[in-house]
Design a protein around this nucleic acid. Sequence first.
DNA 1: AGAAAGCTTAAAGGTTGCTTAAAATTGCGG
DNA 2: CCGCAATTTTAAGCAACCTTTAAGCTTTCT
Lengths: 225, 225
Amino acid sequence: MRLLIIEDEPGIAGFLKDGLEEEFFAVDIAYDGKTGLDLALINEYDLLIIDWMIPALSGIEVCRQVRKAGNPVPILFLTAKDTLEDVVFGLDAGANDYVKKPFEFEELLARIRVQLRNKNKTDDSLTAGLLNINPATHQVFCASNEIFFTPKEFSLLEYLIRNKDRVCTRSRIIEHVWDIHFDSDTSVIDVYITFLRRKLEAAGAGNIIQTIRGVGYIVREPGTS
Amino acid sequence: MRLLIIEDEPGIAGFLKDGLEEEFFAVDIAYDGKTGLDLALINEYDLLIIDWMIPALSGIEVCRQVRKAGNPVPILFLTAKDTLEDVVFGLDAGANDYVKKPFEFEELLARIRVQLRNKNKTDDSLTAGLLNINPATHQVFCASNEIFFTPKEFSLLEYLIRNKDRVCTRSRIIEHVWDIHFDSDTSVIDVYITFLRRKLEAAGAGNIIQTIRGVGYIVREPGTS
DNA sequence: AGAAAGCTTAAAGGTTGCTTAAAATTGCGG
DNA sequence: CCGCAATTTTAAGCAACCTTTAAGCTTTCT
């Protein structure tokens, strides 16, 4: 999961980055609106966190531009202004939620989770067949037996299962799991797919990762034809 | 747009109903959790507005039950409690947003609009008869059965169906699908048309690709003369 | 009937993905 | 700060599959 924070105060930005990285998000920071907008348009983020008052281009304007470009990424506003007009204005400009400063980190986290949940339609905990995946604790169980995965392995498996029953293209995988945003001829994905399959097979989960040649991979929920 | 309000205080419920009907929503009211849950499961609402403290079944419990039934309808909580735990708890239970009482009607309305905005997004998949083609995921379904195509096969099928009800000449096909910009006497197209027809026939889609001798091919939408 | 166009099949060769091993990097404890 | 162990990445050989070619067969039109 990849987030972009657009916030000019280094203190707040750093605090957020540290906290969110502890929660296993990949976090980028932009210190002004223009840089932020460029990053948001070039890269594929899962969520944008934007401060209302930032230099170069206001938060609301960044929001509008992102929407104008047809990008449906969830946007969460941070704002010290708490008058009603501002809230309405922000939400109507295309924001999905807002948090008033000063905020508590836990609430921000909860609201981030809501936005990301909407993105990946799976509301419940992540499961696929016998597998049960807990993103909060980085644990994976196969019918009560725990399987141990390294961070990258886990990240790849999580991405595949969040997109269960949908094809994950190689370029999307490399973007979301490896944060690589240019074409490259690496074969890391192949290697990690092999790792995952080996561990899953050994744990009795079967081969749930299917290859779509020339495109990518898909994890299917058994029983879904 | 159809909304359900689950709220036990008739004053608030009535005020909301009137206000929302003025905004052209169709509004139902349930005065306790149990009735509300039944209504939510029986009918198809575009949004639920649920008070936290209601008789018979708590708001949070209604929320959980709705999600457990696999219903992804947006849920917006109304609550007087504004402690941090409650916010986190409510959002994690499957709610999409949260408004603290006393709230201003304008803000509620803005938040409702945000939730409903997602409803209007159109799926950009292509269809022809029973076929449904999703270019984003490279998947093809024939009435819920997935058909697998190789990259070139997919590309050709996509081109034909994007140009549904129009004749696709051989030279245009070779230009768009194969990137060949000079005349050539290859017979790849014939071969791939055979591949497509075989897979489509096997999946029960019938022979939807018609040959126009001397010109090219056409896919017709059934029912169009 | 003959010719032109399209269909089908099989086999060559090209590309992609899988696997393995080793090198590079990271993270942790001393 | 350094060394060791675990993780991640690179690279190469191999296998599987996809694409293309080409040849023979069928259909359609004159």
